[in-house]
Write a protein that binds this DNA or RNA. Structure first.
Lengths: 338, 338
DNA sequence: TAGGGTCGGTCAAACGATTGAACGACTCTG
DNA sequence: CAGAGTCGTTCAATCGTTTGACCGACCCTA
């Protein structure tokens, strides 16, 4: 009564051919010459028996898992949700399955994942978010192709794909300049994040077109969280009074920025304009709806997958995904008052 | 120069034993009797060579993949982020890897996933979100153990784990009643979602303690999105004027509810109190910060994994995760005005 | 009609780990 | 000192696919 799994041999027997034929038919082997009616018999047998190739056996033989790994810090962060979505889509398009794991969690850690995944379970690994040098070493020791996503590391690893954060910052600041703002301050991301550095650089560059020169007091760092944004804003209110606009390094911090401004009795956008990087669904529903720079996060994830699958491990891969960046003008920015 | 993968045989050779010994040492086979120094030699060889078992070979032999699949509608939905986090954690604790896929996407669909996963790649499957009857049939045909998460299906499939949605609704409504509200309306979820039905039922039951009897006009349906919440609210403002509080079936819709109330010139919580189901990080940052019922979503995911791994396929599994539900009192609810 | 080409297949050796069975060398025990 | 256990280890079959090598039948051509 218990039905055994259907294998190649079963199909071969039913079709009256050798299992080699069946295998080649299944894999559409171009070197196969076969009579049309034989192929027909095979296909029929496959469908009648409901045959499905065993992945384990196939992986064993071919030494390919058909799987890619993506490690992110946290599923609850919508930025990574976008990256995952893009990566998954690209992986599926190439016939691969994507395994996504978080490196912060009750039983998970980067280490744990490297142990579980580094056994031929995946053909390649993508790391989004911060990584330690030790983890990178371990990664190298696994002999897997891997690359960093949205992080450009200072170490010796030369495979990564990032976004044009400086350009995003410029778009945001130029928007504010066009609205007539001059004294524009910056709520920057954490020191360790290279995305934050690039956005700060873009801010400085764009501010060259302002009459207001950027001073140290015009920039405060947050840790990419709402609370961090709130604290940085409080700091800026003290250090850099008179600013009419804020460029925030990400949407999460912008939430805290809006909170703090409101509590300080400042109206957005009447008194202060706010623009942030990343256009997440959330932005639209803040009060006021947040003006943002849309970043191609899905494309970032997709490019990472493509590069991982097409480049050879020794290749250096350093790509900046630059398309489809645009300013999304909502309610948190308005012309500067004369 | 190119280093071959290290196998059992290599380790065995270096340690001067048979590969069977190595295998049993690696797997901590309790039936193995071995001299301590031999074990030591084996372990040393393993670490010297950096041996890692090949998952494909192991899966082939044992017919176990060590992997579970979880299919969700959308990574961007924070509700599923919580479920994933819980499921991942439980899976890792049991030595399994979790493969999470979304069923809505450029190249993904439930079907596509069933094809990719239903080949011995996973030992079991969890489905969160809506499922069609055809998909369920296909699932059955794969002969995989599977279960529904956060959905209780009307079909013949009798394996699922859900939350006590009625109880959550009661907590919310009782909170409003305690604040003195009587005319409480309900922005319900879509008809197809059983979670929505249970929450509506809980609402009706709790309202038995109100002096205001629930009429059809006191309930409007939305589709669990902000827009849906906005539309339902507009409908309620027309149909059921005079309400002093709204119970919203989920946080996403609550976003739209707050929007619409604001645009209608109603202040929250001074004029209308709002409480919603699910405590997501987002809730804290809405304006005003949203009072919610915290649901054990992570535990839901974790229980699903545990049940999938411990129950036998023919068992009926119908579990309601009920712990850790509580009301989170924030700024969107206040005492009813006399 | 011998020799060489296609055609249309079949054969069998991997891939790397797991696991029941067998086995040789000891140590007891009666 | 024969017979029976333990102890510690080896043997070998098996999981299901893939893939290069081989092979027989048939058709040409010289």
């Amino acid at each position: 009564m218990t039905t055994r799994r259907v294998t190649l041999v079963d199909v071969a027997r039913l079709a009256g051919v050798d299992k080699a034929i069946v295998s080649r038919v299944v894999n559409a082997d171009p070197s196969l010459v076969i009579r049309p009616d034989t192929r027909e018999r095979v296909l029929e047998a496959i469908s009648n028996l409901g045959y499905r190739p065993n992945v384990a056996a196939r992986s064993l033989r071919t030494a390919k898992a058909g799987t890619l790994g993506l490690v992110i810090p946290d599923f609850a962060n919508p930025v990574y949700a976008e990256i995952i979505t893009g990566a998954e889509s690209a992986a599926l398009a190439r016939g691969h399955v994507l395994v996504t794991g978080s490196s912060t969690g009750a039983h998970s850690s980067m280490d744990r994942y490297l142990d579980l995944l580094g056994q031929g379970r995946v053909d390649g690994l993508m790391l989004a978010g911060p990584t330690t040098a030790r983890e990178q070493q371990k990664l190298e020791s696994l002999g897997l192709p891997w690359m960093m996503v949205n992080r450009r590391d200072t170490g010796e690893h030369h495979r990564f794909v990032i976004l044009d954060d400086a350009q995003a910052a410029k778009l945001a600041v130029e928007h504010l300049l066009e609205l007539g703002h001059r004294h524009i301050v910056h709520v920057a991301g954490p020191f360790g994040a290279d995305t934050a550095r690039r956005r700060a650089t873009g801010y400085r560059q764009a501010m060259k077109n302002s009459t207001h020169p950027v001073r140290a007091e015009d920039i405060a760092r947050g840790d990419y969280t709402p609370r961090g944004g709130a604290e940085a804003t409080a700091e800026l209110l003290r250090k850099s009074p008179g600013a009419t606009a804020v460029f925030v390094a990400n949407v999460a911090m912008a939430v805290g920025v809006l909170d703090t401004l409101r509590r300080a009795g400042l109206r957005v956008p009447e008194d202060v304009s706010v623009v942030a990087v990343h256009d997440l669904p959330l932005a639209e529903h803040l009060v006021p709806a947040l003006t943002t720079v849309r970043m191609p996060l899905q494309e970032l994830g997709a490019r990472a997958v493509d590069l991982l699958l097409t480049s050879s491990p020794e290749d250096e891969v350093a790509e900046v995904v630059g398309t489809a960046m645009e300013l999304v003008y909502r309610e948190s920015t308005a012309p500067a008052r004369p």
